[in-house]
Design a protein around this nucleic acid. Structure first.
Length: 319
DNA sequence: ATAGGGTTAG
């Protein structure tokens, strides 16, 4: 049989793929061509380069990613655990959770479960997206340990987000307390607290959110820009603009730099109250601090300009 | 290859 590449060419191709992947220099079309080219000469050393290509294609089109996996499986190249992780992610994002479970079952059967922490994360996220967070909790608390796969902050934080999306932030709080009291190796981090504080604020539980924020500080976890923006957002939603400004000031004192999301909350809050002069002040402060308005900032402006009539729309759009 | 915050619409 004729082969287009001798092993040296194959190695060059693999290195080329790796370099271009890391440079963010491969589009989906390129990746598909490179995949065809590589598969013709692939050997067992090619799996890493193949993973880069399947990742690239799968990001754009998960269903296509799954079909590439099938071609890898029928060529003479053994998938590794990373390949399976990419496969599970593609299945989940293609809306085929059933295939994701099947792939996970295969991983468990091969005895790779203990190293499959990231793979589990993809699956957990998809389960939570279907509002079946209770099931995801069972996987984290019971099934993963059964396979010696120790849940990490990613596993737990996916649960927190899922519970909050189902308006079950109280249960998320109890899980945080359980982790702290149990004193295990995985303790809630800044993302865990941010997620649950935000969930409580969105359920209108301002006092509970504040209590949890205090607990976070007591645990020695430093708030960051996301923590503060969540709290500012919560304050703006109940029109407590003075409180929101207070938190902003505390941020600056603590040298936590506000970003566009932070200012967007305040701009939106003042617009809702019709305080246009305050909006102007926030804009000036924003540019003084070197924060660029983003697409959301402009959307807020356009929505409110539209409410004020076509004349002002013209004024706002001339930047 | 995996986790958190900001706008709208119907």
């Amino acid at each position: 049989m004729s082969r287009r590449f001798v092993p040296v060419d194959r190695r060059i191709l693999e290195q080329n793929i790796k370099a271009r992947y890391h440079a963010g220099d491969i589009g989906t079309e390129d990746a598909l061509h490179l995949f065809d080219e590589l598969l013709q000469c692939a050997g067992s050393s090619s799996i890493r380069a193949i993973n880069y290509l399947v990742t690239t294609v799968g990001r754009d089109s998960p269903a296509l990613g799954v079909s590439l996996f099938n071609r890898v499986a029928s060529a003479n190249v053994a998938p590794n655990s990373m390949t399976y992780t990419i496969l599970v992610d593609c299945c989940c994002r293609a809306g085929r959770l059933d295939l994701g479970f099947a792939a996970m079952g295969h991983i468990i059967k091969m005895g790779f479960a203990a190293d499959a922490i990231v793979t589990f994360s993809h699956l957990l996220k998809a389960i939570c997206a279907e509002k079946k967070t209770s099931y995801a909790m069972d996987i984290v608390l019971r099934i993963m340990p059964m396979f010696n796969c120790v849940p990490d902050n990613f596993s737990y934080n996916i649960l927190f987000k899922g519970l909050c999306n189902e308006r079950r932030s109280q249960e998320a709080l109890e899980l945080i307390h359980m982790m702290v009291q149990h004193g295990g190796s995985c303790q809630p981090n800044v993302v865990s607290y941010n997620t649950v504080v935000d969930g409580m604020l969105k359920e209108g539980e301002v006092d509970k959110a504040y209590t949890l924020f205090s607990e976070m500080l007591r645990q020695g976890i430093s708030p960051d820009v996301v923590t503060c923006t969540s709290i500012i957002s919560g304050m703006c939603k109940v029109h407590a603009m003075d409180k929101a400004e207070e938190v902003l000031q505390q941020m600056l004192d603590r040298r936590i730099l506000p970003d566009a999301a932070t200012y967007n909350c305040l701009i939106h809050g003042y617009y809702l109250l019709g305080h246009c002069e305050k909006v102007d002040r926030i804009f000036k402060e924003m540019s003084r601090n070197g924060v660029q308005p983003n697409i959301v900032t402009y959307n807020i402006q356009i929505i409110f300009a539209r409410a004020e009539g076509a004349q002002k729309l013209g004024k706002y759009l001339i930047l």
